[in-house]
Amino acid sequence: MPQEPRNIYGGQAVIEGVMFAGKHVNVTAVRRKNDEIEFYEVPRSSKRWVTGLKKIPLVRGVVGIVESSAKGSQHLNFSMEAYAEDETAEEGKADEPKKAEPEKKGFSLGMIVSVAVAGVLSFIFGKLIFTAVPAAIEDLLFAKAFSSQVGHNLLEGLIKIILLLVYLYFISLTPIIKRLFQYHGAEHKVISAYEAGEKLTVENVQKYSRLHYRCGSSFIVFTVIVGVVVYSMPIFEWETIWERIYLRILLLPAVLGLSYEVLRLTNSVREVPVLRFLGYPGLWLQLLTTKEPNDEQVKVSIASFKRMLELDRQAAAGVNLSANEPKAI
């Protein structure tokens, strides 16, 4: 039998599960407390003008980020609601049921904040902060350290990397983020096994690395590196700290667009021995943003991916996919 074409798929980890984005549908699978795997399926639909923009180099990166963040949040919210329901059900067995609802809300809000910032997927607010704060710190502490602005830009980039690494390290110590990062690793393993043409079994998938060249974590690193290059262009020199921050924010779409193209490039040359090292900075960051998954987490990831493939085939065959209510197996 001829081998199925290897399409390019992406995904993201959610609370106790994984979301995969297909050509026609996005599917999330989460494991509930009773060990059932529950699915959440949302057909993909984009306006024609959005689809057109996603074909334009430099522009497509920014459009893709906005679109994936919006759709990813929908699936993340589903997973958090499922998790909160399970937690509330356990709390309902306690002697003081009236306390369950306030505790649930507080816990869910904490998860929303932690997960959004941990994945650096709150791009509008998070990226602005990540852009402005390092520039302000560098200017405050090292304003007279260099005569060239290139030196200031390099130091600013170093501060960004340090802040990012410190933050990711400490949040990775919390149980819920650690499990999220394990599902992140499971997502990568499944995609790698699929791209290698492997049959998707737990044993086969576990053989693959939890790191992947196309990961959003790699994209974060490239925004720092590309940012240093763009900010160092002579036409973007600044006189005051406010002008410096203003330029950073103004140039943010250009930096994001260029970084996306660099990410695509590193993925396309990852099999070339001399050039594969270009993607190493992103892989190194993934040592923090992914953890080795256990077999049960890999099962959830495989279930999500297989369901996505099944629905994609149905859509390609002309079956009308409508948004489905969550279903369990």
Rank of each mutant, 00 (worst) to 15 (best):
Met1Ile: 11
Gln3Ile: 10
Ile8Ala: 02
Gly10Arg: 10
Val18Asn: 01
Phe20Asp: 02
Val30Lys: 12
Tyr40Ile: 04
Trp49Arg: 15
Lys54Ile: 08
Lys55Asn: 06
Gly64Asp: 01
Ile65Asn: 00
Lys71Glu: 11
Leu76Ser: 09
Leu76Pro: 05
Ser79Gly: 09
Asp86Tyr: 00
Ala89His: 10
Ala89Asp: 09
Ala89Ile: 03
Lys98Gln: 14
Ala100Trp: 10
Pro102Asn: 05
Pro102Ile: 07
Pro102Cys: 07
Gly110Met: 06
Ala118Asp: 04
Val120Glu: 07
Ser122Trp: 06
Gly126Ser: 00
Lys127Pro: 01
Leu128Phe: 05
Thr131Tyr: 05
Thr131Ser: 10
Ala132Arg: 02
Val133Gly: 02
Asp139Cys: 05
Leu141Ile: 10
Phe146Ile: 05
Ser148Cys: 13
Gln149Asp: 03
Gln149Leu: 08
His152Asn: 08
Asn153Gly: 00
Leu155Cys: 05
Leu155Thr: 06
Leu155Ser: 06
Ile171Lys: 13
Ile176Val: 12
Gln182Trp: 08
His184Ser: 11
Ala186Pro: 13
Ile191Leu: 14
Lys199Gln: 14
Glu203Val: 00
Glu203His: 07
Val205Phe: 14
Gln206Arg: 13
Ser209Gly: 08
Cys215Leu: 05
Val224Gln: 01
Val228Gly: 04
Val230Leu: 13
Ser232Ile: 07
Ile235Tyr: 15
Trp238Met: 09
Arg248Asn: 00
Leu256Lys: 00
Leu265Trp: 14
Val272Ser: 04
Phe277Tyr: 14
Phe277Asn: 09
Gly279Cys: 07
Gly282Ile: 13
Leu285Ile: 04
Leu285Cys: 06
Thr289Gln: 03
Thr290Ala: 03
Glu296Ile: 12
Gln297Val: 10
Val300Thr: 02
Lys306Ala: 06
Arg307Leu: 09
Glu310Trp: 08
Val319Met: 13
Ala328Ile: 03
Ile329Trp: 11
